[in-house]
Write a protein that binds this DNA or RNA. Structure first.
Lengths: 253, 253
DNA sequence: TCCGTACTGGGTACACTGTACGAGAAGGCG
DNA sequence: CGCCTTCTCGTACAGTGTACCCAGTACGGA
């Protein structure tokens, strides 16, 4: 299983692709493909079969062309990933944000969560300083607008947005991976803990990890129950937003 | 560039390795290697050259044996990664936690941060439900002890620990990736934004993203300055802990 | 109209990856 | 000693991204 890096390719090349800056040539045969068709295929494969299945040959097969043909449109796989990222960012609704900052950040968090659930492979792409595509720019602008004018410095605004985005990223990743493990193994968390109790007892002192086994079992039961899995997400998000609220106490805004 | 999954191998096999449950045979030639030597080599390579450089052949070369020899000691690369994870978790100091819950969580967060900075490849390993090695168990137990007896339910204790760990993970990842990009490209964030200003102006309406460019520039300057890079970490951590504090208001503990 | 030339398509090849298989060597036990 | 377990590791296979190069296409200028 592999995960990829964004921004690993030539930034200038990626930017040209992202903003559609390459001027189409007048001579020569008409291209059979377009970058967006390639990107759409790649996203479809990643959505359906995961990021590791998205190889250049696989995408090319899907489009009915040879593998090397893709390199006429995209400098390499890294740049393809960059464009995939920016493309799915374009799916975000970016509706009008109403209410106070908390309501706005709440919506932002939920929209990002939906996006991650729709494209789980996003969670496997490292996205620090990705090439600034138009949709990523718009996403950043949109998210900053949620905390504009509430008394934060510019740097604090960025930090708060990053904090919320980071939380959503982590929370969704945990949830998805837990679901995957349960699906692939057919073993729930609770069953897993129970199955390993004998092992844990055999390993030296069973009382060495009292908190871990008590809490671990409780969490397993909770997740195993027909418990609303959104609840865990809500809990963490509320904590993060409470933390931001504490920062704003006593500030004008 | 590739990243790996933990827990992708046979859990039972990983557990046997992690807890050292295999009984050494009496017959046959003496093994030339040990699992811990293999793991130490693998960790050294991953530390020095990154996770993608840690291939089975590379580790075998380092140890002066054939690639397939490793498979006598470790079922596969996934299980090797599991043991690597548990081994570095064993490096955590786990000193006596003093003070109130906030001081304790603060220490936990800092210790985890140090670990990530020492072994950046940890950030590229997906660790949801990794095989329960002895050191991971100890880590979990230690972290739970920071929030034990302060009025949280078991499930809340797990959620708070996961929240803090998730924050540290995300914050360190951002910091490390930002540093990598600056090192490899020689371009600071500020220079990057300035260099792309003409591009952004050329793209339709330059005023389309006023917040993004203002805040982006401010953040770039801040990071570029000889500004203590720990400051950003502190800010986010304080927000997270404030959020936990808000949860505890009015509870006995 | 016709050719040169810019361009596209894609086959082949290379250096990698993890690891299945199986042959040969080594060494404790009856 | 001989058996049988165990260890080492060469070879092989199905993948990966992509560099290189040749063949075919179609427009611009003559």
């Amino acid at each position: 299983m592999t995960t990829e890096y964004s921004g690993a390719g030539d930034p200038a090349k990626s930017l040209e692709l992202l903003w559609g800056l390459q001027t189409p040539p007048t001579r020569g045969p008409k291209p059979a493909l377009t970058v967006s068709r390639i990107v759409a295929s790649a996203i479809a494969i990643a959505d359906a079969e995961g990021l590791p299945a998205m190889s250049m040959r696989r995408v090319a097969d899907e489009l009915g062309v040879g593998a090397m043909t893709l390199y006429r449109y995209v400098p390499g796989k890294s740049e393809l990933l960059d464009v995939m990222l920016d493309t799915v960012y374009g799916e975000l609704p970016r509706r009008q944000l109403d209410g106070d900052w908390r309501a706005k950040l709440d919506i932002v968090a939920r929209e990002n969560r939906e996006l991650y659930l729709r494209h789980p492979w996003l969670l496997q792409v490292a996205t620090s300083r990705p090439p600034l595509g138009p949709h990523l720019m718009a996403k950043y602008e949109y998210e900053l607008s949620a905390v504009e004018g509430i008394g934060l410095t510019d740097v604090e605004m960025d930090a708060v947005v990053a904090l919320v985005n980071g939380y959503v990223h982590g929370a969704v990743r945990s949830a998805i991976e837990a679901k995957h493990v349960i699906q692939s193994s057919g073993i729930t968390d609770e069953q897993w803990w129970r199955a390993h109790e004998p092992l844990l007892q055999k390993i030296g002192d069973a009382a060495r990890f009292p908190l871990a086994s008590r809490v671990g079992t409780a969490v397993g039961i909770e997740f195993n129950a027909a418990y609303d899995s959104d609840h865990g997400f809500e809990f963490g998000l509320a904590r993060v937003l409470d933390g931001v609220a504490a920062l704003l106490v006593g500030r004008p805004g």
